[in-house]
């Protein structure tokens, strides 16, 4: 039996908390979160060739977060919602200006020692902030609900088909985000798209090492932690689904916003996909695809 999971619940909870501190227009933000379905760890597994699946191969009780790139349709609607909220904010501003002018006249007439009223800021297209739509399309897998947990941890979920970006390790409250370099990949219908993810120890030159030397300082252990993401190992080809598993095809993503104020990190370079030059990612794919292809 599949267990329905409302993805992004943690992110939405945080958004609700943030909304309490922003203007009323923030409550108008309305978008369907991603629906994902866990494939349970059973001896018999039946997959649907009309559906899309994501398999994450990881270590122990790992938590990984991804987000789905929104469709053009969703972007248009999100922009419309912003325009409506901006219009509302402009109406509020008219009223705020009337109050300000009244208060200013009173202040000037009294010439009192009280603080001069502050001029309300007029909302404009340029200064009216609005959350990124991508931040509402996140999904977090793990630490529980594993499809397999013997030699390796596997998480298998039915997800909406589309293009995904690896956001980071952890959940919104405690996130190590791949904000300084990540990857995107398609999750098409009719297959299980697989990735392997592992936090990796690094030496002082940021080269991967098997483990930290004895006596490594606590802060150094946290700082010198890299994010490995690559295609699956043979352990991901679980007999129940082996014929369905296909390695994800990665493309580089130069930077992501730090939505949750977590630690910022970047994925390790991937042979044949990209290398780093400072904070730039150098595309090393043989035939780079067009960036517009995702929509």
């Amino acid at each position: 039996m599949m267990k329905r999971v409302e993805a992004s619940a943690a992110a939405l909870g945080l958004v609700a908390l943030l909304s309490a501190f922003t203007s009323a227009s923030a409550l108008a933000q309305d978008v369907e979160p991603i629906r994902i379905d866990r494939i349970a760890d059973r001896s018999e597994v039946t997959l649907d060739s009309g559906k899309a699946y994501l398999l994450v191969e990881g270590t122990g009780m790992m938590v990984s977060t991804f987000f789905k790139l929104p469709s053009d349709e969703m972007r248009v609607d999100w922009a419309r919602q912003r325009e409506e909220a901006l219009a509302e904010a402009r109406e509020d501003h008219v009223r705020a200006m009337a109050r300000y002018e009244r208060d200013l006249a009173y202040f000037e007439a009294r010439n009192s020692a009280q603080r001069r009223p502050e001029l309300p800021v007029e909302p404009t297209e340029e200064n009216f902030a609005w959350p990124e739509l991508e931040s509402r399309q996140t999904m977090t897998l793990g630490p529980q609900n594993r499809f397999a947990n013997d030699d390796v941890s596997l998480w298998l979920y039915e997800v909406p088909a589309g293009e995904y970006i690896f956001y980071g390790l952890g959940m919104p409250e405690f996130m190590d985000c791949a904000c300084m370099g990540s990857v995107r990949f398609e999750v098409p219908v009719g297959q299980v798209t697989a990735v392997r993810i592992e936090p990796t120890a690094l030496d002082p030159r940021a080269n991967p090492i098997a483990e930290f030397p004895d006596g490594t300082d606590g802060t150094d252990r946290v700082v010198r932690s890299g994010l490995l993401i690559e295609g699956p190992s043979e352990l991901a080809f679980d007999p129940r689904i082996a014929n369905w598993v296909r390695p994800a095809q990665f493309a580089p993503v130069p930077s992501l916003p730090n939505w949750y104020g977590g630690t910022i990190n970047r994925v390790l370079p991937i042979d044949g996909v990209f290398a780093y030059d400072g904070l730039q990612m150098v595309d090393r794919r043989e035939q780079p695809t067009s960036s517009a292809g995702g929509q």
Binding site: A26, A79, P123, E125, E126, N127, F128, A129, L133, P257
Partner: peptide, 10 residues
């Protein structure tokens, strides 16, 4: 679409 982060308004 999104305006600035931490913009002057909202």
């Amino acid at each position: 679409q999104y305006g600035p982060i931490g913009g002057a308004v909202g």
